[in-house]
């Protein structure tokens, strides 16, 4: 299961917040935040971020490189 975290480079554009089907993302003053209790690990937020500011991790806390087509 992959863990998604809003990383550096968040521009608060709100794309992830709008795209999240679980409505698990909300905006703070300087970044978007994923509520991990609501997150369904679908990865739609990752696909929607235009500045590649979301990082993906394996749930044993190891970073994984995502290949883009």
């Amino acid at each position: 299961m992959k863990i998604y975290l809003i990383d550096h480079g968040c521009k608060k554009c709100g794309s992830c917040e709008m795209a999240c089907p679980a409505q698990a993302i909300y905006m703070l003053e300087d970044t978007a935040v994923i509520d991990q209790k609501l997150c369904r690990h679908c990865g739609i937020c990752y696909d929607s971020c235009p500045t590649e500011a979301i990082s993906v991790h394996e749930d044993n806390n190891q970073k994984q490189e995502q290949e883009k087509p």
């Binding site: 794309s15 990752y46 696909d47 929607s48 971020c49 235009p50 590649e52 883009k68 087509p69």
Partner: peptide, 8 residues
Amino acid sequence: MNGHWHRN
């Protein structure tokens, strides 16, 4: 046609 990813 490989012309879109993560909103770019």
